[in-house]
Design a binder for these strands. Structure first.
Lengths: 184, 184
DNA sequence: TAAACGCGGACTTATATAGTCCGCGTTATG
DNA sequence: CATAACGCGGACTATATAAGTCCGCGTTTA
């Protein structure tokens, strides 16, 4: 398994779409279906981004998510920490103090300060985090702009608009989603 | 859970003991009991270090492990890769090509090259690995030498010697370990 | 020949991830 | 004001990995 899970990947891809000049808030369902990932799973990720202050949510029909601040002020590290919860790369088990020659009571020189092995891991983690903090959503969006044709943003915006229209036009006999149970 | 598991920690601590001027090979059992970790678990780690060429093994009674090369030529990254198998920090799911506006067949501009998000993760992983590669077993051992009293190495060597003596002196009626089943 | 080794495969258990399901409160719209 | 589309969150399941155990084989030395 990898240290950085799929949730981070989904979250970043969604946030990249929110980087563009949107008409209004985008729902987590639309974002999920635009990218072909699970709607219910993505619905568990966005509240984390909201709590971290990366996106702002509007409730009710026509609600959805917007970036809470400018894309150049949101780093990849912000997103990783929001979703994964700042979990450490390494968890020191404090083997130091268990040495059999200590006989159960480890002397201070053995347990003071940070374990040398732990220290290496902390440095490595710091380097990793520095690199993640060095890239913002704006950087990612810019690199994509260089690749995609000029027509692409418009097509996506049209896709969102079409979904909204389909919903308002949908008659009650359409492909209905389950509602709360009929009675009890 | 952490990306770097306990196996790495156990392995590094053991290798640090092997750094000192040993009399002979150290068995994985002795190494485990010296540090208060599971003997059977540690016995699964050492073969990996042996396959990676970090330690060399000698079989049979009085057998055990020795460092296969000088401590200043063994980096923390070598040990991590030997034990964890060079697992990636991030596994790209290639969300790029799934965009609904492509309708199943993604254009080349969308899937060519490395995904921008994946690229950030690869850079972060590279930084992490660079830092792990920058520290050797000799560096770790040196930092420990600065902390431990001069008598410590001798005490550990005495502990190993005492174990060996106890084994040769152990009468058949001593605390026997299970042997292969009596008959069938 | 037996004990102490390394080696490796089969097994168990615990935890984390990925993903689903469901009901509640909120809100715009007809 | 009723309904449908929202966000929110809790409970649930399934699967993968980590951590640890158990056991038997071949090797080696005393």
């Amino acid at each position: 398994m990898a240290h950085l899970g799929n949730s981070v990947e989904y979250g970043l891809h969604c946030l990249l779409w929110l980087t563009g000049p949107q008409a209004g808030p985008a729902s987590s369902r639309d974002l999920a279906e635009l990218q072909g990932v699970s709607t219910s799973f993505l619905a568990k990720i966005f509240p984390k981004l909201e709590k971290a202050g990366i996106v702002s949510a509007s409730e009710g029909i026509r609600g959805g998510y917007l970036l809470a601040r400018a894309p150049d002020r949101i780093t990849v590290l912000d997103v990783v920490d929001a979703i994964e919860g700042d979990k450490p790369l390494f968890e020191c088990q404090e083997i130091r103090g268990r040495c059999a020659v200590f006989g159960g009571k480890a002397p201070g020189w053995a347990t003071d300060g940070v374990c040398a092995i732990h220290a290496v891991m902390l440095r490595a983690e710091k380097r990793m985090r520095e690199e993640l903090a060095a890239t913002t959503l704006a950087d990612l969006a810019k690199s994509l702009d260089g690749k995609m044709p000029a027509a692409m943003p418009g097509q996506v915006q049209a896709w969102f608009a079409a979904r909204g229209a389909a919903r308002t036009a949908a008659p009650p006999d359409g492909p209905k989603r389950r509602r709360r149970r009929p009675s009890a």
